[in-house]
């Protein structure tokens, strides 16, 4: 008998940032593994594009702005009421900021931390509420190798991603008794719309240098989706508090 240890049949899985890049790829893979995917993002049209790519018809869209952090707990309860008890949350939504520290303003940093860190904390708080999770479950955050290493012009961004790594460990400790696992995937440079934005700020030579730092070249959103689902599914049953670096060898230097 063939088995699939990453089978997700019937599991309600919330994916934030589902309108593009890694979030879209994770949603697609989850649907191919049988999950019931709840697509979260700010743009209805782009979420509809993702929905049209998914396998199966059991999926849904939730238009929500995660920067409204105080509203996340009540919203998450509604999501569970509309879609059923939630097995897992994949938090892909986030912003990048390439800005020299001497030009940074506190408002920019606070806005970045709100979407990259505060929303993650509030999603975890919301997922653990009674009537939301399916007697436990799994949360996977998407951070970046920039949470482990530094780079010029990225201090605020690196701080936000490093915060996610320590958040992952602390939440894992706090929520283990509620049978909720918390992990994080730290991607290297992946070909997404976010990379396109970065390319506008960097020269071709700088982009080529970044690519040369990754022995396996730039990754794809699908590469990251595989790691995310590995941590969500039965394959991750004994894994919590981990940061899985998926970077084509970038941090092996």
């Amino acid at each position: 008998m063939m088995i699939n240890p990453m089978d997700m049949t019937g599991r309600v899985t919330v994916v934030t940032g589902a309108s593009s890049g890694i979030g879209r790829a994770a949603s697609l893979l989850l649907s191919q593994l049988g999950a019931r995917v709840v697509l979260v993002g700010r743009n209805q049209d782009r979420l509809s594009q993702t929905l049209a790519m998914l396998e199966g018809s059991q999926h849904s869209i939730e238009v929500f702005d995660l920067t409204s952090t105080d509203d996340i707990p009540a919203w998450m309860k509604l999501v569970a009421q509309r879609n059923g008890l939630i097995s897992g949350v994949v938090h892909c939504a986030g912003e990048q900021l390439i800005f020299p520290v001497r030009m940074l303003k506190s408002q920019q940093v606070e806005e970045l931390l709100r979407i990259n860190v505060v929303s993650a904390i509030m999603l975890a708080k919301s997922f653990r509420q009674h009537g939301v999770n399916d007697s436990g479950g799994a949360i996977v955050f998407v951070s970046s190798v920039m949470g482990e290493v530094g780079a010029p012009g990225r201090s605020a961004y690196c701080a936000s991603k490093g915060a996610l790594h320590s958040l992952t460990k602390s939440l894992a400790m706090e929520l283990a008794k509620e049978r909720i696992r918390v992990n994080c995937v730290a991607p290297g440079t992946v070909k997404t719309e976010m990379l396109d934005e970065a390319q506008n700020l960097l020269t071709d030579a700088q982009i080529a240098e970044i690519e040369s730092m990754q022995p396996l070249g730039f990754g794809t959103p699908r590469d990251i989706a595989h790691a995310l689902v590995f941590l969500l599914a039965e394959t991750g049953r004994w894994i919590t508090g981990s940061v899985l670096i998926v970077d084509g060898g970038y941090t092996a230097h």
Binding site: F99, P100, R102, M103, P152, G153, L201
Partner: peptide, 8 residues
């Protein structure tokens, strides 16, 4: 870095 500063 100066180039990034100019962009900003």
């Amino acid at each position: 870095m100066s180039a990034l500063i100019y962009m900003a």
